[in-house]
Nucleic acid binder design. Structure first.
Lengths: 184, 184
DNA sequence: GTCTATACACCGATAGAC
DNA sequence: GTCTATCGGTGTATAGAC
């Protein structure tokens, strides 16, 4: 029962970039051990169910980031355009200017799809619905609001794919800049 | 020197779905052996450089599919709208109604990104440029044509990500249907 | 709570018979 | 050209000392 070197959350934060960059299979315990500075056995102390639990914790951590930095601003009072602008700004940071992949997409396209399908589906749906609600508040017809919100998130995901495929983050930045006019 | 059970191309065709579904790391020799019906040693006879060569061959095979079914129709004579319509129809088949992932995206987001980066980048750029050329022929200003083409492919990729994340191919189908009006 | 050492399965890859 | 058998390495996971 010695004092922990890091809090659980600090450990998870150090696991994030490994799963984000290498995917589930590619995130080996060797890499996870190196990125945290903890031995494998110590990781199993924090996450008794092993790699699955680590990935689930990382996914949960990222969903909290999304919730607090993207969804929460959308739910606040104020001009819809202003709220969407805050989302854009925070997404730019979230995805490191387009250089980092979306964990949801990496896990959804990868081999581990079924393992995390429920969490991924819920996160994407919540995002779409929250954004859609802002548009409805701005006077957009509900069906149209839903469609535009789906299109917006779809373009964000697509631009992140192309950013990695083309090695060019320009598309991602342009998609974020056009978000407001696309939506309103 | 006994007679081969399959041609090289038949073998590659059987390797495709494994890489497409499981990614590079997830496509183990056990799975590749099972899907082809060949023992591991036989696979190494066809692909002396092992898994890397198999994946490269699969990527090349898919790029030929893209070339012949998507790009070639775009280059033919005829109404631009008609040519784009042919592309949409063939993309619908290519991605199995949105149920199958794009190999380019899987490899671009996965752990093996650097291994195939050149091939991926070239394929995406060729696609964008070929589509852009059709728009220019239709009278669209070149910069605008490039931007619209990027947007179209970005939306296709994004919709494939969401199709897997949401377990719903509706978005992919809608993106294909809106392709023509988006572009022209 | 972290470590070293280790178990055991599976990975990619090769050798050699047929 | 395909097979069985096997190699060395690495994967995840665990045991037990401190």
């Amino acid at each position: 029962m010695s004092a922990p070197l890091m809090s659980r959350e600090e450990v998870i934060a150090k696991l994030v970039p490994v799963f984000r960059q290498y995917g589930y299979d590619g995130a080996t315990l060797a890499k996870l051990s190196e990125s945290t500075g903890l031995g494998r056995a110590s990781l199993y102390h924090h996450f008794p169910n092993g790699k699955r639990e680590m990935a689930a914790a990382v996914l949960n951590y990222m969903n909290q980031w999304l919730e607090s930095s993207v969804l929460e601003p959308l739910r606040q009072d104020g001009e819809p355009a202003e709220r969407i602008c805050v989302m854009s700004t925070n997404l730019y940071k979230f995805y490191n200017c387009g250089k980092d992949a979306c964990l949801l997409a990496v896990l959804a396209l990868g081999e581990s799809r079924d393992l995390f399908h429920t969490q991924i589906q819920k996160a994407l749906n919540t995002w779409i619905e929250t954004l859609s609600h802002v548009l409805v508040e701005a006077g957009v017809e509900p069906n149209c609001a839903r469609r535009r919100s789906e299109n917006a998130i779809l373009k964000i995901q697509g631009s992140l794919v192309l950013a990695r495929g083309l090695n060019d983050t320009g598309l991602f930045e342009r998609v974020l800049q056009c978000l407001i006019e696309d939506l309103l």
